[in-house]
Computed example of a mutant assay.
Amino acid sequence: MKEIGQTASQLTDPNSDVPTMTFKVTSIQPITCDATYATQPTGTIIGINLEISTTSNFSGPLIVDGQEGMISFSPYHWKGYAANGTRMNKVDSPAVQGCLSDESKLLPSYMGKGEQLNGLVLLDVTSPTGEVSYDPSGGGGWVWKYPSA
């Protein structure tokens, strides 16, 4: 389990073990949707603030519009777990898609090599406390408790 705002997580080049992407969750907090036509969430909307940096050698696990080497922090790549350990059926919903009036606070859908980003991922979780995990390629991932202090 990763601590909020502590050491950064990394993805490395499989041929050299050199880090090509670092990312850090700096906070996980409940979000109040302020968009004019925001959809009612299923549970609680949480905002996960991330700082992400990729090198010029980064190659992510996704192919987007024919471009290889991309990565996404979109809700699709996250899972939620209630405080009792029960996995949530999903953490993506129409509510996270139109929650904020200022969408510039959100991370882009995909990113590639040589980028530095700081922004939010929104998840619709069914319990006010629990854990979320990020697993971009289905081969294991990282877990954080929410909400963070």
Results as ranks from 00 to 15, higher is better:
P14E: 06
V96G: 02
A149Y: 10
L100A: 06
Q29C: 04
Y76A: 15
L120Q: 02
D17S: 14
I31S: 06
E115A: 10
L11N: 10
T39K: 10
F58K: 03
P94A: 11
E68K: 08
N15D: 13
I52E: 06
M88S: 03
G141L: 05
S27R: 14
G114K: 03
S104H: 05
V125N: 00
A8M: 04
D92F: 06
F73E: 11
D17Q: 13
G60I: 12
G5H: 00
G47A: 01
T54K: 03
K105T: 03
F23H: 06
V18P: 01
L11F: 14
P147Y: 11
D17G: 06
S137N: 15
M1P: 09
G5L: 10
P19L: 06
N57G: 06
N15T: 13
C99Q: 07
S16L: 01
P30Y: 05
G139Q: 14
P41L: 08
M21Y: 08
E51M: 11
T7P: 03
I63W: 11
T22A: 14
P41V: 01
G66W: 05
F23L: 10
D65V: 13
A149Q: 14
S133Y: 02
S74D: 15
V25L: 09
N57Y: 07
G140N: 02
T44K: 05
A8E: 02
A95R: 03
S53N: 11
P108Y: 12
L50A: 09
S127P: 01
D92M: 09
V121S: 05
G98V: 01
G139S: 11
T55R: 06
Q97W: 13
A38P: 05
E103K: 15
G112S: 00
V143P: 08
Q116Y: 08
K2H: 07
D135E: 14
S9D: 14
Q29N: 09
S109R: 07
N15M: 12
W78G: 00
S72N: 04
I28E: 00
T54E: 05
F23D: 09
T12M: 08
Q10F: 12
M70F: 00
G138S: 08
T55F: 00
Q10C: 11
T86Q: 11
T54W: 03
E68W: 08
W78T: 01
M111K: 06
K24Q: 00
S127T: 14
D34E: 05
G98R: 03
D34S: 04
V125W: 00
T55E: 03
Q6N: 11
Y146G: 02
S53M: 12
T22C: 04
T126R: 10
P61Y: 12
L50H: 06
S27W: 10
S109Q: 05
I52N: 07
